Deep mutational scan, measured.
Amino acid sequence: MTEYKLVVVGAGGVGKSALTIQLIQNHFVDEYDPTIEDSYRKQVVIDGETCLLDILDTAGQEEYSAMRDQYMRTGEGFLCVFAINNTKSFEDIHHYREQIKRVKDSEDVPMVLVGNKCDLPSRTVDTKQAQDLARSYGIPFIETSAKTRQGVDDAFYTLVREIRKHKEKMSKDGKKKKKKSKTKCVIM
């Protein structure tokens, strides 16, 4: 069974824990209790493949930012979460993405942009803004509501699919490099 290491990042209060708990335990946590770091595991079937999701729910508070490099190193894919009623959390996505790329030393890291709290009427981040940002990053965008469960499975499952595509691409690139290195030079 394939294991996928997913990391949920975003500013404090955007609903990272609520999304994760909704996926794992099928219930909505409405009281806000700032996370330092929590880890969850769940076995699911995605596109006919049974897999184990190892999900790291991270601290959004700035005082825990020193811990970010460590979990970013171990993560295979990242859910970059903002709240649709919090423009600052949307603007912060850029910083999370840049930090992930720096730590992973790669421009090509599996990510999904997630606009959470889409059940709320007080939207300050337009869907088109988020779609445009995701398009500019070359990553999928999904709106979710941890409260109603809308888009929750889709967000995590899409990230797994992005990781699969990335692994497939990397193995193809690896095979191309191996083929090239088999060419021999004969000096007579």
Rank of each mutant, 00 (worst) to 15 (best):
residue 2 T to I: 09
residue 2 T to V: 11
residue 2 T to W: 08
residue 2 T to C: 12
residue 3 E to N: 13
residue 3 E to G: 15
residue 3 E to L: 08
residue 3 E to R: 14
residue 3 E to T: 12
residue 3 E to P: 15
residue 3 E to C: 12
residue 3 E to Y: 09
residue 3 E to S: 14
residue 4 Y to T: 12
residue 4 Y to F: 14
residue 4 Y to Q: 12
residue 4 Y to W: 08
residue 5 K to M: 03
residue 5 K to N: 09
residue 5 K to A: 04
residue 6 L to K: 01
residue 6 L to W: 04
residue 6 L to T: 08
residue 6 L to E: 02
residue 6 L to D: 01
residue 6 L to F: 09
residue 7 V to N: 08
residue 7 V to E: 06
residue 7 V to C: 10
residue 7 V to Q: 10
residue 7 V to I: 14
residue 8 V to I: 11
residue 8 V to E: 03
residue 8 V to M: 06
residue 8 V to A: 05
residue 8 V to W: 02
residue 8 V to C: 08
residue 9 V to R: 03
residue 9 V to A: 07
residue 9 V to D: 04
residue 9 V to L: 15
residue 9 V to C: 12
residue 9 V to W: 04
residue 9 V to Q: 04
residue 9 V to F: 13
residue 9 V to S: 05
residue 10 G to S: 04
residue 10 G to N: 02
residue 10 G to V: 01
residue 10 G to F: 00
residue 10 G to M: 00
residue 11 A to Y: 08
residue 11 A to D: 09
residue 11 A to C: 12
residue 11 A to T: 08
residue 11 A to G: 09
residue 12 G to W: 08
residue 12 G to D: 13
residue 12 G to T: 12
residue 12 G to S: 13
residue 12 G to L: 07
residue 12 G to A: 12
residue 13 G to L: 11
residue 13 G to F: 12
residue 13 G to P: 12
residue 13 G to A: 11
residue 13 G to Y: 09
residue 13 G to Q: 13
residue 13 G to C: 12
residue 13 G to S: 11
residue 13 G to M: 13
residue 13 G to T: 11
residue 14 V to D: 09
residue 14 V to T: 12
residue 14 V to Q: 12
residue 14 V to R: 05
residue 14 V to C: 12
residue 14 V to W: 04
residue 14 V to E: 10
residue 15 G to S: 00
residue 15 G to N: 01
residue 15 G to K: 00
residue 15 G to C: 01
residue 15 G to I: 01
residue 15 G to R: 01
residue 16 K to W: 00
residue 16 K to I: 00
residue 16 K to G: 05
residue 16 K to V: 01
residue 16 K to E: 04
residue 16 K to C: 06
residue 16 K to Y: 00
residue 16 K to L: 00
residue 17 S to T: 06
residue 17 S to E: 00
residue 17 S to C: 03
residue 18 A to D: 07
residue 18 A to C: 11
residue 18 A to P: 02
residue 18 A to Y: 01
residue 18 A to L: 02
residue 18 A to M: 11
residue 18 A to S: 10
residue 18 A to F: 02
residue 19 L to C: 12
residue 19 L to N: 15
residue 19 L to A: 15
residue 19 L to S: 15
residue 19 L to E: 14
residue 19 L to Q: 14
residue 19 L to K: 12
residue 19 L to I: 11
residue 19 L to W: 05
residue 19 L to H: 15
residue 19 L to F: 08
residue 20 T to K: 03
residue 20 T to I: 06
residue 20 T to L: 07
residue 20 T to H: 02
residue 20 T to R: 01
residue 21 I to Y: 07
residue 21 I to R: 12
residue 21 I to V: 15
residue 22 Q to C: 04
residue 22 Q to N: 15
residue 22 Q to K: 11
residue 22 Q to W: 10
residue 23 L to S: 15
residue 23 L to M: 15
residue 23 L to F: 14
residue 23 L to D: 07
residue 23 L to Q: 15
residue 23 L to N: 15
residue 23 L to K: 15
residue 24 I to N: 09
residue 24 I to E: 05
residue 24 I to V: 14
residue 24 I to S: 12
residue 24 I to C: 09
residue 24 I to K: 04
residue 24 I to Q: 08
residue 25 Q to C: 07
residue 25 Q to V: 05
residue 25 Q to W: 05
residue 25 Q to I: 04
residue 26 N to W: 06
residue 26 N to E: 12
residue 26 N to G: 12
residue 26 N to R: 10
residue 26 N to A: 13
residue 26 N to V: 05
residue 26 N to L: 06
residue 27 H to I: 09
residue 27 H to V: 08
residue 27 H to M: 15
residue 27 H to A: 13
residue 27 H to N: 12
residue 27 H to C: 12
residue 27 H to K: 13
residue 27 H to F: 12
residue 27 H to D: 10
residue 28 F to T: 04
residue 28 F to M: 07
residue 28 F to R: 04
residue 28 F to D: 02
residue 28 F to A: 04
residue 28 F to G: 03
residue 28 F to S: 04
residue 28 F to W: 10
residue 29 V to L: 09
residue 29 V to G: 10
residue 29 V to K: 09
residue 29 V to E: 13
residue 29 V to W: 08
residue 29 V to D: 13
residue 29 V to Y: 11
residue 30 D to S: 13
residue 30 D to Q: 14
residue 30 D to A: 13
residue 30 D to M: 11
residue 30 D to N: 14
residue 30 D to E: 12
residue 31 E to I: 14
residue 31 E to P: 12
residue 31 E to N: 15
residue 31 E to R: 15
residue 32 Y to F: 04
residue 32 Y to T: 04
residue 32 Y to N: 05
residue 32 Y to I: 04
residue 32 Y to W: 12
residue 32 Y to S: 04
residue 32 Y to C: 05
residue 32 Y to H: 12
residue 32 Y to P: 04
residue 32 Y to K: 03
residue 32 Y to R: 05
residue 33 D to F: 03
residue 33 D to A: 04
residue 33 D to V: 04
residue 33 D to K: 05
residue 33 D to Q: 05
residue 33 D to S: 07
residue 34 P to A: 09
residue 34 P to Q: 05
residue 34 P to C: 05
residue 34 P to Y: 04
residue 34 P to G: 04
residue 34 P to K: 04
residue 34 P to W: 03
residue 35 T to W: 00
residue 35 T to N: 01
residue 35 T to K: 00
residue 35 T to M: 01
residue 35 T to V: 02
residue 35 T to P: 00
residue 36 I to R: 01
residue 36 I to T: 02
residue 36 I to N: 00
residue 36 I to V: 05
residue 37 E to C: 05
residue 37 E to Y: 03
residue 37 E to R: 03
residue 37 E to L: 06
residue 37 E to F: 03
residue 37 E to N: 04
residue 37 E to A: 06
residue 37 E to H: 03
residue 37 E to T: 03
residue 37 E to S: 04
residue 38 D to G: 02
residue 38 D to A: 00
residue 38 D to Q: 01
residue 38 D to M: 01
residue 38 D to L: 00
residue 38 D to T: 01
residue 38 D to C: 00
residue 38 D to V: 02
residue 39 S to G: 15
residue 39 S to R: 15
residue 39 S to H: 08
residue 39 S to A: 15
residue 39 S to K: 15
residue 39 S to Y: 10
residue 39 S to I: 02
residue 39 S to P: 00
residue 39 S to M: 15
residue 40 Y to N: 01
residue 40 Y to R: 00
residue 40 Y to D: 00
residue 40 Y to F: 03
residue 40 Y to C: 01
residue 40 Y to M: 01
residue 40 Y to S: 01
residue 40 Y to V: 01
residue 40 Y to A: 01
residue 41 R to Q: 11
residue 41 R to V: 07
residue 42 K to M: 09
residue 42 K to E: 07
residue 42 K to V: 08
residue 42 K to R: 13
residue 42 K to F: 08
residue 43 Q to S: 12
residue 43 Q to V: 09
residue 43 Q to W: 05
residue 44 V to F: 15
residue 44 V to I: 11
residue 44 V to C: 12
residue 44 V to K: 13
residue 44 V to T: 14
residue 44 V to M: 14
residue 45 V to H: 10
residue 45 V to L: 11
residue 45 V to K: 13
residue 45 V to D: 14
residue 45 V to G: 13
residue 45 V to W: 08
residue 45 V to R: 11
residue 45 V to T: 13
residue 45 V to A: 13
residue 46 I to M: 12
residue 46 I to L: 10
residue 46 I to Q: 11
residue 46 I to Y: 09
residue 46 I to D: 13
residue 46 I to F: 10
residue 46 I to K: 13
residue 47 D to S: 09
residue 47 D to E: 11
residue 47 D to C: 06
residue 47 D to I: 03
residue 47 D to T: 07
residue 47 D to L: 05
residue 47 D to K: 10
residue 47 D to M: 06
residue 47 D to F: 05
residue 48 G to N: 11
residue 48 G to E: 10
residue 48 G to H: 09
residue 48 G to W: 05
residue 48 G to C: 05
residue 48 G to P: 08
residue 49 E to R: 09
residue 49 E to H: 10
residue 49 E to Q: 14
residue 49 E to C: 08
residue 49 E to T: 11
residue 50 T to H: 12
residue 50 T to I: 11
residue 50 T to Q: 12
residue 50 T to F: 08
residue 50 T to W: 07
residue 50 T to S: 11
residue 51 C to V: 14
residue 51 C to Y: 13
residue 51 C to E: 10
residue 51 C to R: 09
residue 51 C to G: 10
residue 51 C to A: 09
residue 52 L to E: 12
residue 52 L to Q: 15
residue 52 L to A: 14
residue 52 L to Y: 14
residue 52 L to P: 11
residue 53 L to M: 11
residue 53 L to C: 12
residue 53 L to G: 09
residue 53 L to Q: 08
residue 53 L to W: 09
residue 54 D to V: 06
residue 54 D to P: 14
residue 54 D to Y: 08
residue 54 D to L: 05
residue 54 D to N: 14
residue 54 D to R: 12
residue 54 D to K: 11
residue 55 I to C: 14
residue 55 I to W: 04
residue 55 I to T: 14
residue 55 I to Y: 04
residue 55 I to R: 00
residue 55 I to Q: 03
residue 56 L to M: 09
residue 56 L to T: 09
residue 56 L to C: 08
residue 56 L to N: 04
residue 57 D to A: 01
residue 57 D to R: 01
residue 57 D to H: 01
residue 57 D to G: 01
residue 57 D to E: 02
residue 58 T to R: 02
residue 58 T to H: 01
residue 58 T to W: 00
residue 58 T to K: 02
residue 58 T to P: 04
residue 58 T to D: 02
residue 58 T to Q: 02
residue 58 T to Y: 02
residue 59 A to G: 11
residue 59 A to Y: 02
residue 59 A to E: 03
residue 59 A to W: 01
residue 59 A to P: 04
residue 59 A to Q: 03
residue 60 G to D: 03
residue 60 G to I: 01
residue 60 G to M: 01
residue 60 G to H: 03
residue 60 G to C: 03
residue 60 G to Q: 02
residue 61 Q to C: 13
residue 61 Q to P: 07
residue 61 Q to T: 14
residue 61 Q to Y: 07
residue 62 E to G: 09
residue 62 E to Y: 08
residue 62 E to S: 09
residue 62 E to W: 06
residue 62 E to P: 12
residue 62 E to K: 08
residue 63 E to V: 06
residue 63 E to K: 09
residue 63 E to A: 07
residue 63 E to Q: 10
residue 63 E to T: 09
residue 64 Y to T: 06
residue 64 Y to Q: 06
residue 64 Y to R: 05
residue 64 Y to M: 07
residue 64 Y to L: 06
residue 64 Y to W: 10
residue 64 Y to I: 05
residue 64 Y to H: 08
